[in-house]
Design a protein around this nucleic acid. Structure first.
Lengths: 114, 114
DNA sequence: TAATTATATAACGATTTGCTTATATAATCA
DNA sequence: TGATTATATAAGCAAATCGTTATATAATTA
């Protein structure tokens, strides 16, 4: 094995977090783009608190970080996370989700909002 | 991407299954060895029904298969599963668990039982 | 054939999870 | 400054999860 293996316990915690459709898609999207909460609300047709709570879980283990820009808070993948190499190998096996952001742009929802 | 990406929904289901310390360790062990239920009971210091139920979940999605040999039922990773490439990339990042089987052998628990 | 061993399954309870509603905070705009 | 917009958080509830105990089934052994 090239890099140090992740501990079994920690791996299970991270995988459980990824074991939710919304959070998994979020991470896949964030791997390529910064994104704010209201965009996720639009993309997943979910409530704002629901999205916020998912993001909090990802942030609590350091997988994503937040960055306030004026009124908005943008989230991005934390590439310095000790888990980044681990989840990277998972995310790269998932289908590209960039069409979801393109849809927002088409709707004008991306620009209007953020 | 070289191989076809796994669907997002299916990936989340599989990751949730792997998001349990016992099941994750089981799969890592099974990736290298066949193993019977009583060995897992010994390895994880868990009850027999608990182990059986974990194995059932893995079997229900086709990640493992069973093979009765007399009194015992041996489990192994199902390499024909459509998810095998996906979980393979995860398992290869986990620390080797073969010492757990070696401990059983030292105790004589492996031979006695299976 | 009766007792034992290995495993599966069902029923139940405690805990966790993920959503909802309600409310608080922070930034912007009129 | 007051209203609006974006976000976070708390409380409560329903569903899912995971272990336990009890029991059933299948193979083996005495």
């Amino acid at each position: 094995m090239l890099q140090t293996a992740i501990e079994m316990d920690k791996a299970a915690v991270i995988l459980k977090l990824l074991g939710d459709k919304t959070r998994l898609s979020m991470l896949k999207i964030l791997d390529d783009n910064d994104c704010c909460v209201c965009e996720f609300v639009e993309i997943f047709k979910a409530s704002q608190p629901s999205i916020s709570q998912h993001l909090r879980k990802l942030r609590d283990v350091g997988l994503v970080k937040e960055d306030r820009r004026g009124q908005w808070i943008f989230y991005s993948v934390n590439q310095n996370s000790e888990y980044y190499p681990f989840i990277g190998k998972i995310l790269e096996q998932l289908p590209d989700q960039s069409y979801k952001l393109k849809e927002l742009e088409k709707q004008g929802t991306r620009i209007t909002c953020c």
